[in-house]
């Protein structure tokens, strides 16, 4: 077929099994509170829902140290 569009290279995202999902930026995230944008070269999306900076990861997924 003439003028067929080039197939787009798939965007690979990286899943940290115990942490965020890494997506190449810039990124827009639709959230219930509106669209959040990040221009960073890579963006870490929170998946544990503990982040205080949702939708971005703030490392709150890390296990808590046991109290000594």
């Amino acid at each position: 077929m003439p003028n067929a569009p080039e197939p787009r290279a798939p965007r690979r995202v990286v899943v940290d099994p115990h942490g965020p999902v890494l997506v190449e930026g810039p990124v827009e995230v639709e959230t219930p509170d509106g669209i959040r944008r990040s221009d960073r070269f890579m963006v870490a999306l929170c998946t544990c829902r503990r982040s205080r900076t949702l939708p971005w990861c703030d490392t709150s997924h890390r296990p808590r140290e046991r109290r000594r």
Binding site: V14, P20, M42, V43, W56, T59
Partner: peptide, 11 residues
């Protein structure tokens, strides 16, 4: 640094 370094740590 909260959000930037959460990314930088991974990378």
């Amino acid at each position: 640094h909260v959000t930037a370094d959460a990314v930088h740590e991974q990378v």
